[in-house]
């Protein structure tokens, strides 16, 4: 919209009667969006369940080929980012502008670290010929079962790829919030965007909380 001379702090949109109504609507809207995300990832979790049930041994071998340390470190990084995010939301509830910006930047950085580690892992997969396709080969799996191993890596790339895409979107949202906070848009009375962005960030974290054991930790003891 057109640039406004004064900074709107209590941004009540015209379709709402009260600020409480507007906040309720935004929060409910975000939660409903998150259940659509549950169902979106749910389709892949279903495919994972079906194929892990069908090929348990191959999945265990393929899972063990993933870098456990990197996966675990990334889990910790993401949990740290959730912690800083919740502190940013808390700072917004208290109306502490500088603290909001600080914690949002920390969250952003941690998100960046996660994506960097992820990119490094994918590069490794590429060099190890673990990308599904004609050149795919996984050591320790019989020739007639290479296809099953490809299914694991197809799921691995689809799931971590879509998770990473959500992270990238999250990073974009955080950047937007940082600029808006610097303009002084958010106060203790109006901080809904920070609040719902927090919900989104934590949700993406929860997806990873499940991806980590499902992809990285299948029967590690067998190796």
């Amino acid at each position: 919209m057109a640039s406004q001379a004064h900074v709107e702090t209590l941004a009540l949109r015209e379709q709402f009667d009260t600020e409480a109504q507007q906040k309720d609507a935004s929060t409910l809207g975000m939660w409903i969006f998150l259940i659509t995300e549950i169902m979106f990832f749910g389709g892949m979790f279903l495919a994972y369940t079906v194929y892990r049930g069908a090929f348990p041994m191959v999945f265990a071998v393929a899972s063990s080929s993933l870098a456990l340390i990197l996966g675990a470190v990334n889990t910790v990084v993401l949990l740290c980012s959730s912690f800083t995010m919740v502190l940013a939301v808390r700072a917004a509830q208290l109306g502490q502008q500088r603290a909001i910006i600080l914690f949002l930047i920390l969250t952003l950085l941690l998100g960046g670290v996660f994506l960097g580690v992820k990119a490094y892992e994918w590069k490794d997969k590429f060099e190890e010929h673990h990308i599904p396709g004609p050149t795919f080969h996984l050591e320790g799996v019989a020739t007639d079962q290479q296809g099953h191993a490809q299914l694991f890596f197809s799921l691995y790339f689809a799931m971590t790829g879509l998770h990473a895409l959500h992270m990238v979107i999250g990073v974009g949202i955080l950047t937007f919030l940082i600029f808006q906070t610097r303009k002084g848009r958010y106060t203790a009375d109006y901080m809904t965007p920070v609040d719902v962005a927090g919900l989104y960030w934590h949700f993406v974290d929860i997806i990873w909380i499940f991806l980590f054991p499902l992809l990285y930790l299948i029967d590690r003891h067998m190796k």
Binding site: I38, M39, G43, F45, L46
Partner: peptide, 14 residues
Amino acid sequence: LVVLGGLLWLGILL
């Protein structure tokens, strides 16, 4: 309720 509903529907799918 929304959260439980989402999880329930994931359960139905699975």
